[in-house]
Computed example of a mutant assay.
Amino acid sequence: MKINPMQHEMQTMALDAKNVGRVATGQQVSQDFGELLSTAINHVNTLQKSSGELATRFDQGDRSVSLADVMLARNKSSVAFDATVQTRNKLVEVYKELMNMPV
């Protein structure tokens, strides 16, 4: 697990928390959420591509790729995908709940 991107994200969140005086509009929040979701999905896609490439290289006999590397990459991509699916399910559930609320 790489720590630097996580640390950078935490620092960014801390700076955002300090900017409490800034008023965010609904449109800005929507854009921020959309960017966050897009980034997360792209990260999952990258993990899956990397896993597939490692598996292909291992199958072709590349000695620089071990079975442990392939299994680790496959498990990382699997966990990331499962987390994405669960997030999607929660978002759909919340959307349905909001749509059923009386106005």
Rank of each mutant, 00 (worst) to 15 (best):
K2G: 11
N4T: 13
P5F: 02
P5E: 02
M6H: 14
Q7I: 12
H8Y: 11
E9L: 09
Q11G: 05
Q11A: 10
Q11E: 10
T12W: 07
M13F: 10
A14H: 07
A14N: 06
L15F: 03
D16Q: 11
A17N: 10
N19F: 04
N19I: 01
G21P: 00
G21A: 07
R22W: 15
R22C: 02
R22M: 12
R22N: 07
A24K: 14
T25D: 05
T25S: 10
V29R: 13
Q31F: 08
Q31S: 15
F33W: 12
F33R: 13
L37G: 08
S38I: 04
T39P: 00
T39Y: 05
A40K: 02
A40I: 00
V44E: 05
V44M: 06
N45H: 06
T46N: 10
L47I: 01
S50L: 09
S51Q: 02
S51L: 00
G52C: 06
L54C: 01
A55R: 13
A55E: 10
T56C: 06
R57W: 04
F58D: 02
F58I: 03
G61V: 09
G61E: 05
R63C: 06
R63S: 10
V65W: 05
A68F: 07
D69R: 02
L72D: 14
R74Y: 07
S78F: 06
S78R: 04
A80Q: 00
A80D: 02
A80W: 00
F81V: 02
D82W: 01
A83C: 07
Q86C: 02
Q86V: 06
Q86K: 11
T87P: 01
R88T: 06
N89R: 07
K90N: 15
Y95E: 12
L98P: 00
L98V: 03
M99G: 07
M101Q: 08
P102N: 15
P102R: 14
P102Q: 14
V103H: 05
V103F: 01
